[in-house]
Design a protein around this nucleic acid. Structure first.
Length: 228
DNA sequence: GCGACAG
DNA sequence: ATCTTGTCGC
């Protein structure tokens, strides 16, 4: 089951200024080194969607067997949306529902790929970090578009990548998961190093741009087509 | 002051 | 995120 350290648990329905304080306090808890199982057997993806013009937040977690990437289990959770979308504070809008979904799983995943940034964030505490620090599950941020940072031209071949930089600091990697597709933005969430995160994301990719973990959670979170 | 801005 | 059709390219 999912247990959150009461020492770091906090309110979600807070003003932006307080959300910022929470980020500044929790960013110190982020572990940027590998603290995950050597041999993985369960990897998961999490994504969030909305219903009723945004009134309802819906989170979906898809757990896949590793390395076969076959869907093993999934969970969906819905709750009233309480926080607006404000760049830099996405986690305050989406995390509550994500925690609910994780709580429904029969077994927690050994690593979780999140749909958004990890430390590639203005205060180095994006969605993936927030979910990771609260749950202690190793997490990786896999975003479809850039939020902050600059980078050189990304090599065209599959698996090619360059550092995502911000004020001289490496905050992530811009990774070409397939030849001829737009790259994805990978960053540390919690309990994993960037090299390991990049490698793991590639291990979760088959024939599409996005890793299977996020493809499954996307599909489940948005009630789309697909058998599962 | 003027843009940029995860989902 | 979500609203939405056809269309260009491999």
């Amino acid at each position: 089951m999912l247990t959150i350290n009461p020492t770091i648990a906090h309110a979600w329905d807070v003003p932006i200024a307080q959300a910022r304080d929470i980020q500044l306090a929790l960013k110190e808890k982020v572990i940027r080194q590998d603290r995950l199982k050597k041999t993985l057997s369960r990897v998961a993806g999490v994504d969030v969607g909305f219903e009723d013009n945004g009134k309802i937040t819906r989170a979906a977690v898809a757990v896949l067997d590793f390395p076969s990437l076959e869907l093993m289990e999934y969970a969906i959770a819905r709750r009233d949306t309480r926080f607006p979308y404000v760049p830099g504070y996405l986690s305050f809008r989406e995390t509550p529902a994500v925690l609910d979904a994780l709580q429904k799983l029969s077994q927690l995943p050994e690593v979780l790929l999140c749909d958004g940034q990890g430390v590639a964030h203005p205060r180095r505490f994006g969605l993936a970090c927030h979910i990771g620090v609260l749950t202690e599950i190793p997490t990786i941020g896999v975003a479809k578009t850039r939020f902050i940072g600059t980078h050189a031209t990304v090599p065209e071949e599959k698996g090619g990548y360059v550092s995502l930089m911000d004020h001289g600091e490496e905050i992530g990697a811009v990774l070409r998961t397939r030849k001829g597709v737009k790259p994805v933005y990978v960053s540390i969430g919690h309990r994993i190093s960037l090299p390991t995160a990049i490698h793991l994301v590639m291990q979760c990719v088959t024939k599409y741009r996005l890793p299977e973990t996020t493809r499954w959670s996307d599909r489940i979170a948005s009630n789309k087509t697909g058998d599962y």
